[in-house]
Write a protein that binds this DNA or RNA. Structure first.
Lengths: 121, 121
DNA sequence: GAGCCTGTCAACCAGAAGGTTGAAAGACTC
DNA sequence: GAGTCTTTCAACCTTCTGGTTGACAGGCTC
């Protein structure tokens, strides 16, 4: 089950059509018909994609007159960013530490290998 | 078809198990058995997940002695980051422009509204 | 109110995804 | 070289997904 937020977000963006919708919505709100226009698929299919994006929080549909608009929501990008940055930073830190260890190993005699104990999980 | 890179990446990260693997690998390389240990699933299933991550470029399996290690690859994070930032920035720019228009429209209000741009987290 | 466009819902279908079991090939240890 | 551990392949099952068609409700305009 893709019940948690990030799963829904990543799953929503895994589809090229939906990524394209996001890309186009970043340039401005659009009606469903405008959104659907470039794609070779039924309007119902577009609605389904829209629902996926909406459930993921990537898009909202503010109430209004009949040709309702679709709007990109940006908070979700922050969520993704936080997730990515967290692990990227952690991995980078780890690599820097490893580099330091390797540099020290090169400098000194090769039998200081026990220093690895801190870097290998 | 999830043939392009970003689709594969997002699809790979849409699964909580795989995100958890990425999270744990960011702390250090691991063998498949170590990776599999916390999960209630067969080793074959873990290999399948690993293959998805590998095909997405999120993970590599450098050659070596038999309990081969799994390593997190970070270039992919840059790709995602670029995608996210691109549309986020575009949408932000658009909102700022919209704010400016709105501010001009009700010209009664002074342009204190511009201060809002610093408060958007 | 009739008609038309917009927006939804439900049923269905084909294919992909996540998981299982079973078998088998490689690599390491003794 | 026998035995064990690691890795992979193939078949199968079930659920999810992306798409279709068809029907139908909500609003707008005449």
């Amino acid at each position: 089950m893709t019940t948690d937020g990030l799963s829904r977000i990543f799953a929503a963006l895994a589809d090229p059509t939906r990524r394209d919708m996001v890309a186009r919505l970043s340039a401005g709100d659009a009606t469903v018909n405008q959104l659907a226009e470039p794609y070779q698929m039924t309007l119902q299919a577009v609605y389904k994609h829209l629902k996926v994006l909406e459930d993921a929080g990537l898009v909202s549909r503010p109430p209004g007159p009949q040709p309702r608009s679709v709007r990109l929501e940006m908070e979700v990008f922050d969520l993704m960013d936080k997730w990515i940055e967290r692990y990227r930073r952690q991995a980078e830190k780890r690599y820097r530490r490893l580099d330091a260890v390797l540099a020290r190993m090169n400098d000194e005699t090769p039998n200081d290998i026990e220093e690895q104990k801190g870097t290998t999980a």
